[in-house]
Design a protein around this nucleic acid. Structure first.
Lengths: 249, 249
DNA sequence: CCTCGTGCAAGAGCGGCGCTCTCGTTTGTG
DNA sequence: CACAAACGAGAGCGCCGCTCTTGCACGAGG
């Protein structure tokens, strides 16, 4: 099954990939709204109706791209985070956050597909939710490690303690789901969710132009936000004000 | 000039409003992507080409809606915040945040237009930036009042103090602009910007389904996030754990 | 009052879109 | 070899944004 015997099956597999690649190229360039099935068909040298042999609709094509992008983003975050020493929690957090942002900034069209306005009548099928949670799962892992490293449920996330009380009631609002690290403390999940929301908001504002002429250096601004969000989630620098890892390239 | 004398001018004004209202109705229902100029024309009983007498393009119509929505949202936040006693800073903050969310939740299409994926070839004209900043200006006013109320540059935003150092470098990245409260301390502006980003991210995640089956009660979750974001920005509850104002209706 | 230029609505039409259906052709299988 | 399934191409449907032309009603100047 993994080795397609017949020529037809092989051709089908190849063409499906070609269509996806062409669609991906158009997506990165123009964003999801401008992705037309007819244009993709032209790019791969087909007539539009022939594409429907491979994807039953434009939405199905978008869904395939969605899964692919979620996985790619998740992988980028995971590998960036894995390259840092396990006990350097702030380093892992910052590496993950930076990988997140650079992936998004380099592919604004993909970002718009993943986190932008959903298409009007479109409901994401179930196969997209697992890849979609990959990023936040990577983040929650770092936070959980931080909590395990420190002591007690509130490892002084730069807070005196009332912050925990503030957020605590929210734990009840978050159903466990099991999707995100079932062994992680609920409080850590909640805080990670907030940090993740902040990170997303920052990238979204940058890419969609809402910080235009407000923030001078997006990368520096993002670093500051990421560190602050991480601290709020319980990822504290080793030395209180250790030198920040330099930004790559 | 304010009183249109001729019947022509009056008809023009009326029809322009009718078109905008019809477009607004379709926008709220279906979102910006599904807003078709032809459909709007049908709604007002015109032929599509006739609409071009009033708006030179679909983008122009969207721009008009954009300004209108920004203003409406800003007004909603401002009036909600103004209804609270001036010295109840947490109450003002929470009222502003809740007004923000409920406006967005009640008009997901409008929210998508304002903060969702920008249309591919569209660059927001200059007249949109002033209304766009109205919300964040309202927020920064509350934060600035909090800072003025408390002492010194860091009124213990639930933090020991290193948080200020963490964020401090970011001040340099934010150009003053003057758009947002020129007299407000830069640090307050930066923190408000972060809080605003978090608020936006929370609403966006809610409306775009990224918290589906993750957060049980969106309103409660939002309250918790808003209070925490406010505390990080320097808006602290009067009594440390004073009873939260009940959610309206 | 009448005329002439202007603003206006309507219609046809252009190319592009998602999607469906039909029609030969190719391909794999019983 | 024959038959069915898969396939590519084409035509066509109704939608879209937008342009151009046509006929008409309005309103200001003579």
């Amino acid at each position: 099954m993994t080795a397609p015997r017949t020529a037809r099956a092989l051709a089908r597999e190849t063409l499906t990939r070609d269509i996806l690649d062409a669609a991906r190229a158009r997506l990165v360039a123009d964003g999801p709204a401008a992705l037309s099935l007819r244009a993709v068909a032209r790019d791969v040298g087909m007539v539009s109706s022939a594409v429907y042999r491979y994807f039953p609709s434009r939405d199905a094509l978008l869904t395939a791209l969605l899964v692919e992008c979620y996985d790619e983003l998740g992988a980028a975050v995971e590998t960036a985070e894995a390259a840092v020493a396990r006990d350097d929690l702030t380093g892992r957090w910052l590496a993950a956050c930076r990988a997140l942002r650079s992936w998004c900034v380099q592919r604004p069209g993909d970002f718009a597909l993943l986190y932008g306005t959903p298409v009007p009548g479109y409901a994401a099928p179930q196969d997209t939710v697992e890849p979609a949670t990959r990023v936040v799962r990577a983040l929650v892992r770092i936070v959980a490690d931080s909590w395990a490293d420190g002591a007690g449920p509130a490892p002084a996330p730069s807070s005196g303690g009332d912050a925990a009380a503030l957020v605590a009631p929210a734990v009840a609002f978050v159903s466990a789901r099991g999707l995100v690290a079932p062994d992680a403390p609920a409080e850590a999940v909640v805080r990670t969710l907030m940090a993740w929301t902040t990170l997303f908001g920052t990238v979204s504002f940058e890419l969609f132009g809402h910080l235009h002429r407000t923030v001078a250096d997006y990368a520096d601004w993002f670093d500051a936000v990421a560190l602050r969000a991480g601290a709020d989630a319980g990822v504290v620098p080793r030395g209180m004000d250790a030198a920040l890892p330099p930004r790559g390239r």
